[in-house]
């Protein structure tokens, strides 16, 4: 039972990170139907920028906590600029082109970003400076750290903020209208370009935070860290029903928990035949099974065929 609770907690932490990244995928997809494959790389850039800024400032004598805060802000600003440029330079010229064209562009951008990062930061794993003091908590036989608590709380706060933005502000209304029907929304005076750019910028800011979280959780960062993370987050978004905010959040957290439980118990399930290195298949197996029974994801709307 202790292991069970422990894995739920670990899964919740990992899942919060997935959820933040998944939101970026789902916003862009919901509004323009594009799988932004480069989104995972934005997470990676966020993590690496924050390392550089934090360690530079810390080396100059700034207290580590404050330097970390600057690092986080710098990462967010850089990623927002990056997200905005991605949309402006790579995707906007392709609107109205065949469906797979922007997908290939996204893949191209992903390759470009990864290799740029490798040129700037090198091939080696970088140690992430400890931003928060190492405090351990114990509760009902489970252990968790301050970092984990902060990750979960901060993610929850950011998600609440996003929900407020989308459902209570004018920009949010414009975003929802564009997702429903871009042509009509633009007739109603919605500036489509601005809405799409905002989705990219907001998604990228969340990705930057997620990047810093991953970095401080695992205490390392690497130019390839974004790819698998992005993939899992996208899986989470689809699991929840892509284009749906609540779906992305629930999908992310669910995926984190399933992975953690799976890794903890797979040996028992299979009588020791499969070991914990099969952890990565859980995401995909669950996805396939869910989609077989709910073809639009857990929270996706059923889109009926219209004749």
């Amino acid at each position: 039972m202790d292991i069970f609770l422990q894995q739920i907690i670990n899964g919740l932490v990992q899942g919060s990170i997935y959820a933040l990244v998944a939101l970026g995928y789902t916003m862009v997809y919901g509004i323009m139907g594009l799988i932004n494959f480069a989104h995972g790389e934005v997470v990676m850039i966020g993590a690496l920028i924050s390392i550089t800024v934090t360690s530079t400032l810390a080396a100059a004598g700034m207290p580590l906590g404050l330097a970390g805060l600057f690092g986080l802000v710098a990462a967010m600003l850089t990623c927002m600029a990056l997200g905005w440029s991605l949309e402006r330079i790579a995707y906007r010229p392709l609107r109205g082109s065949p469906r797979l064209t922007p997908l290939i562009t996204a893949i191209g951008m992903s390759i470009v970003l990864q290799n740029l990062a490798m040129i700037f930061w090198g091939r080696n794993y970088m140690t992430f400076p400890p931003l928060l003091p190492k405090v351990n908590f114990e509760f009902a036989g489970t252990h968790f750290t301050l970092v984990q608590v902060v990750i979960v709380l901060l993610s929850a706060a950011l998600m609440a903020g996003l929900v407020f933005l989308v459902y209570r502000t004018k920009l949010g209304m414009a975003m929802r209208a564009t997702a429903q029907n871009p042509a009509v929304a633009s007739l109603m005076g919605v500036n489509i370009n601005r809405v799409i750019a905002s989705a990219f910028v907001i998604g990228s800011a969340l990705a930057a935070v997620a990047g810093v979280m991953v970095g401080s959780y695992y205490e390392i960062a690497h130019y390839q860290m974004g790819f698998m993370l992005g993939l899992k987050a996208f899986t989470a978004a689809v699991l929840g029903g892509i284009g749906n905010l609540a779906g992305a959040m629930a999908g992310g957290i669910l995926l984190g928990i399933i992975e953690a439980l799976g890794a903890g118990y797979i040996g028992d399930f299979t009588g020791g035949f499969l070991g914990s290195h099969y952890q990565d298949i859980f995401a995909f197996v669950v996805l396939i099974v869910v989609l077989m029974f709910k073809p639009s994801g857990l929270f996706g709307e059923k889109t009926g065929d219209r004749a």
Binding site: I35, L231, T235, I242, F284, S296, T303
Partner: peptide, 11 residues
């Protein structure tokens, strides 16, 4: 649907 199929095949 298209993109759901894409991610399932990827998985």
């Amino acid at each position: 649907r298209g993109d759901y199929l894409a991610i399932v095949t990827l998985g």
